[in-house]
Nucleic acid binder design. Structure first.
Lengths: 345, 345
DNA sequence: CTGAAAGCGCTTACAG
DNA sequence: CTGAAAGCGCTTACAG
């Protein structure tokens, strides 16, 4: 139990309101008095009680908006749990979180979601953006004209006024895969890259990070691809079959995105499952299962929950305490898992 | 802004105190009334506001004690940051956290720390225990006689009445290392194990997990050791030199504990650094540096902060909300890191 | 068994 | 510029 505003008021011989004005620089107070009160507060080691503060400010009702893209995917589903956790916390501190889920990826839906949020009176927005000019402009409009701070998460848009980004460093993720693959195949042989979409920046960056690092560190590895499977298993299967036909001595496969079942069933068909070293991404779908049975050797992944939780809490801390985020790019942990580090539950 | 107790009181035509008694099963209320109020609350979607609750209960001042062993080590230093984070959070919710740091490992100091905590009136204790009969007895005494719940963290003591354990599954940690080593050396060749102390359960379990898994999964790997370096670099260096002399074809080294500098300088002396595959534990000391320069291939580690943070928060949730911990053994994430996944800062 | 009132620590109109 | 008072949502003696 610390020092309270009342104790300071008594010590200074003023009212509690006056102490409040002094300590929170609200003006309407004689500077000398303010100074004296601040000094006393400091001497007494005053630290404001967040509970009292939050409770009394809960009338103001801080409102935070969250906009998700591709809300139907397993990853976003997991991420949403993080958003929900943050929502409960914000809720219990007297705030509100509004979530808008866009099922697929749509520029117009994104913009109308932003407008909806504004009409609802949110004081800040955390969103998965789209890399389109109109969306970028709208973000800048919100930040500069409406003074509604915007945080991007999961994927980022460059050259906007967004406050910060929370998500994976995709380039580094590809590099980590390169380091693993290098060791797995003993630094030489043919290694194929299979990706999801050529248009997705995160995925292209994983590919790029992988390729450049392999070339740099393991010059005796021969890179094949990237081929694109559009995260569809049948396509991934066909691509893999073709690779296995064409390169019977294939040593490794790096899959940047989903399609793991297709790849593995092709490898199984050719008796190569477990023999060809395979690295895949994310802890969704059949990935853990395939890791357990030995078809996948390593999984690289991100903490989806944190990606949902942090952006909301960063905004809340900003609005509630005026705490600015520590850095502009908040890269989340890159997890490496083998079959022995699969979490329970 | 959710439904408040006042709104329920109005809807039910009773006082707020009565609603409180109904919703929190405090007795002194006619069962039918209680039932009716609970029903109304449910219909209205009532969720208690933690702020109001916490503020009004902050008179009671929940007090949690934390006892650390070997508080001078880098790991404990990091863990302490997690404790401090929890302390701030508990503090801002009206509670208090008392920390007692035991510099080395001492049975008598542990027991007197526990007694001190009790005199200070803590309502629960989170502690790094020692696996000694007297300490175990004292834990049981606290739980059963004094009704002070005890959580162990970082290391556990079996067969006590402690509420739960938060820390690493050391056996699994050794297995994860085995899986990595198997891939690194291509499933065959001589691999040495160097450990810290034969008397430390965590370390012995890492060794055991490593050995049994290697034997099972990679029968063509020939295991050497374990040798014990007492976490001292000179000893680790001598052990490694001897190994390199005796087994010029050594393929890998698994170091369960500190001594990394000694091992690496011996390897360097023999021109083997980076050639012999090395796996080490924990993200302390020179480990990241050696990972970057390529002498260490993988690091396996635990999140020290979480190990400090969680036990305190589990106790707080228990005392404040009556939330029981979800499970008895709360194993923390086993992190695998290569040079590409070293966190910034 | 139930209600009215005070209080937790802070903020915020409203007077003066 | 300053103070007195009400209020945030909950809990808790104290009466009855």
């Amino acid at each position: 139990m610390g020092v309270t505003i009342r104790q300071i008021a008594e010590a200074a011989g003023v009212s509690r309101g006056t102490v409040d004005r002094a300590l929170n620089n609200r003006g309407r107070i004689r500077p000398e008095v303010a100074e004296r009160i601040r000094k006393i507060a400091k001497e007494m080691g005053y630290r404001p009680n967040q509970l009292g503060r939050a409770l009394s400010m809960s009338k103001n009702n801080i409102k935070i908006g969250v906009i998700l893209q591709s809300a139907e995917t397993p990853f976003m589903h997991e991420l949403l749990k993080g958003v929900e956790a943050a929502r409960e916390e914000v809720d219990s501190l007297g705030g509100t979180v509004l979530v808008y889920k866009i099922p697929h990826i749509s520029q117009s839906d994104t913009i109308s979601a932003m407008e909806l949020m504004r009409e609802e009176g949110v004081s800040a927005i955390a969103m998965v953006p789209i890399d389109e000019e109109k969306v970028k402009e709208r973000i800048n409009l919100f930040v500069e004209e409406y003074h509604i701070p915007v945080i991007t998460f999961n994927s980022d848009v460059k050259d906007t006024k967004r406050l910060c980004f929370v998500g994976q460093n995709a380039l580094q993720c590809g590099r980590a895969a390169a380091g693993l693959m290098g060791e797995l195949v003993g630094g030489k042989g043919k290694v194929a890259v299979i990706s999801g979409y050529s248009t997705n920046t995160s995925l292209s960056n994983r590919v790029l990070g992988f390729q450049t690092e392999v070339e740099k560190r393991y010059p005796r590895i021969q890179l094949l691809g990237p081929e694109y499977c559009y995260e569809e298993n049948p396509r991934a299967e066909k691509i893999t079959e073709k690779l296995l036909e064409q390169y019977p001595d294939l040593k490794g496969i790096y899959l940047t995105s989903h399609g793991e079942e297709g790849v593995c069933s092709a490898m199984r068909k050719y008796g190569k499952a477990g023999k060809i070293k395979m690295i895949a991404n994310d802890f969704m779908g059949k990935n853990y299962e395939l890791l357990r049975e030995g078809s996948i050797h390593f999984l690289i992944g991100q903490d989806a929950r944190i990606q949902g939780y942090e952006p909301v809490m960063i905004l809340f801390r900003l609005l509630f305490n005026g705490e600015e985020p520590e850095r502009e790019l908040q890269y989340t942990e890159i997890y490496i898992r083998n079959e022995y580090t699969i979490p329970e539950v």
